[in-house]
Design a protein around this nucleic acid. Structure first.
Lengths: 164, 164
DNA sequence: CGCAAGTATCTCGACATCAAGATATATCCC
DNA sequence: GGGATATATCTTGATGTCGAGATACTTGCG
């Protein structure tokens, strides 16, 4: 089955036969797939009354395990946003009663963000919904292929995650 | 080499052993890799004085071949943004002298967006720069692996690109 | 000890995006 | 042909994000 990137690459080969556009076969597909995923996730989360960014923050805290708290700095590295964005997110989640800020007992510069009981439930429900949707998307691939794909992607992401 | 998604999945297995989080192995990596790529592209384009969104529009027109023109609607489907966004982008690119709007001779509702000579040169230069950067990122994989990866990604993206 | 450099978080202004609605034109069918 | 429906683009208002700078506290070095 052909996709938009096949057409994109064919067009470049026609217009710029002097260039090797092979890298686009992988990386343009990653970018485009990510945009489609964003849209799909937005609709999946809407069923649970959450925005994607809310899900990102709540689940990061949920994964941390009891007592479900992390510093804003730890949340930054997990969600790949800037500090100004995270402050804003925490403010809004606090307003909705899904998280609360606590002073860090070990460092008076810092704070800890903790999930409320309500926030934990919302995160758990939304995760189950997300996984159901994602399983449908991945039905295009066999289990073996999914494993191969995960492995290849890991090799590309690892340098970003380990050198910062 | 371990990546952030390995840690994420391990955390979920510890916190929610009742759930099958296998889909995240693929799709979370796609999302995270895309965010890293966005940042890398931003710096690559900065060398040529372009923003990523400017590159997206200019190269779509460049790929169309002489006379390098497309309708706003065609640009929408290629760049995955909304119509309001595209209007804004065309306005700004027009202001920078990289594209210009022409009336569509066949449909008086429509317009055609055409690349200027300056816009074409900028697109060509930025593309070469982008490919150089991307080749470095992909050096993690053999040529064969890149082909496999492209094929697997195509299977996931194709439904989005062909059913809309 | 005391000061410089580093770190954690927040503030603020600019900006790109989106969604929904408005406008103008085209197409379809009776 | 004429009116309903569809299409192409633009407008508007709200919103989330970024990036640079500010503040407060901590750490390291002399």
């Amino acid at each position: 089955m052909e996709d938009e990137v096949d057409r994109l690459v064919a067009a470049w080969r026609r217009e710029r036969p002097d260039l090797d556009v092979e890298p686009l076969e992988v990386l343009s597909r990653v970018s485009r797939l990510a945009r489609h995923l964003d849209r799909a996730r937005r609709t999946a989360f809407a069923e649970h009354g959450l925005e994607p960014w809310e899900f990102d923050v709540l689940t990061a805290l949920r994964r941390a395990g009891s007592p479900y708290q992390l510093s804003p700095g730890q949340l930054l590295t997990q969600t790949l946003v800037t500090s100004g964005t995270m402050t804003n997110r925490i403010d809004r989640l606090t307003g909705k009663g899904l998280v609360k800020r606590l002073p860090d007992p070990d460092d008076r510069r810092g704070v800890l963000v903790r999930l409320t009981d309500d926030g934990r439930d919302r995160a758990d429900q939304a995760l189950a919904g997300l996984l159901a949707h994602e399983r449908e998307l991945l039905a295009q691939l066999t289990s073996t292929q999914q494993g191969e794909l995960a492995g290849l992607l890991r090799q590309l992401v690892a340098p970003f995650d380990n050198i910062p």
